[in-house]
Computed example of a mutant assay.
Amino acid sequence: MQNRPGTFGKLSALAIGAVSLLTLGNSANTRQDVIVTAIDLRSSDGTVLACLTPSDGAFPDCGEDDRSQRRIVRANTRVTIVFNDVEPGEYAVSLLHDENGNGKVDKALFIPTEGFGFSRDAKLRLGPPRFSAAAFKVSSEAPVYQTIRMRYLKR
């Protein structure tokens, strides 16, 4: 077998090119899904309104933040909500069990009459928790799973 000049160089260039393409393909997919499971809903009436936001100022209702994602799913005693293609960063999730389907938080004397929940099971403190109490990290490594227990202050 003859050793042809330049053959090794061509093979090396092809191998480097293939590795580069594989690396580019992996680095382009830096977004992940955030999968939220809401548990302990008291009924299957209405819907669950969900907000995923990277913004302290848009928490807990997503406000007018274009970076936030909103979802509405049919209620059940347990529901799963998927936020697709979330960029790496810090986020918080809030949920509302909108039992009557009017699209807003119903209150009696400033107390919510419908269920709610927050990522990291953040607790209420004279109002909704701070963003920092509910915040979690999303990386490019793997999907993020959050389980949120719904709470009801009025029966």
Rank of each mutant, 00 (worst) to 15 (best):
residue 34 V to Y: 01
residue 37 T to H: 10
residue 60 P to A: 13
residue 79 V to D: 05
residue 52 L to G: 02
residue 44 S to Q: 09
residue 44 S to A: 15
residue 75 A to W: 00
residue 57 G to T: 13
residue 75 A to M: 06
residue 18 A to P: 14
residue 59 F to T: 02
residue 49 L to R: 13
residue 38 A to N: 04
residue 44 S to P: 03
residue 20 S to R: 01
residue 11 L to R: 11
residue 64 E to A: 02
residue 35 I to N: 02
residue 51 C to Y: 07
residue 72 I to S: 08
residue 19 V to R: 09
residue 75 A to Y: 01
residue 57 G to E: 13
residue 77 T to F: 13
residue 64 E to I: 06
residue 55 S to I: 05
residue 62 C to E: 00
residue 74 R to L: 14
residue 76 N to Q: 14
residue 50 A to D: 07
residue 69 Q to W: 00
residue 11 L to K: 09
residue 33 D to K: 11
residue 64 E to Q: 09
residue 24 L to G: 15
residue 12 S to L: 12
residue 55 S to N: 07
residue 38 A to P: 01
residue 28 A to W: 12
residue 64 E to K: 09
residue 38 A to H: 02
residue 41 L to Y: 02
residue 32 Q to F: 02
residue 11 L to M: 12
residue 16 I to C: 06
residue 76 N to S: 15
residue 63 G to V: 02
residue 81 I to G: 05
residue 7 T to G: 15
residue 72 I to N: 11
residue 58 A to H: 01
residue 67 R to N: 04
residue 49 L to T: 08
residue 49 L to P: 00
residue 63 G to E: 11
residue 61 D to S: 14
residue 41 L to E: 07
residue 38 A to M: 04
residue 77 T to Q: 12
residue 82 V to E: 05
residue 23 T to G: 15
residue 80 T to A: 09
residue 62 C to K: 00
residue 54 P to W: 00
residue 29 N to V: 05
residue 51 C to L: 09
residue 17 G to F: 04
residue 42 R to S: 15
residue 38 A to Y: 01
residue 60 P to R: 02
residue 52 L to H: 03
residue 82 V to F: 06
residue 5 P to D: 10
residue 18 A to F: 14
residue 27 S to W: 12
residue 48 V to F: 02
residue 39 I to Y: 09
residue 72 I to G: 03
residue 30 T to H: 14
residue 66 D to E: 12
residue 13 A to E: 07
residue 11 L to I: 15
residue 41 L to P: 04
residue 26 N to W: 12
residue 70 R to V: 08
residue 70 R to C: 04
residue 61 D to T: 01
residue 23 T to L: 13
residue 46 G to R: 10
residue 21 L to E: 06
residue 70 R to L: 08
residue 83 F to K: 03
residue 67 R to T: 02
residue 21 L to N: 07
residue 48 V to D: 11
residue 51 C to W: 08
residue 18 A to V: 08
residue 56 D to K: 08
residue 79 V to N: 06
residue 59 F to I: 02
residue 63 G to T: 01
residue 70 R to M: 11
residue 9 G to A: 15
residue 20 S to Q: 02
residue 57 G to V: 10
residue 30 T to F: 09
residue 21 L to W: 04
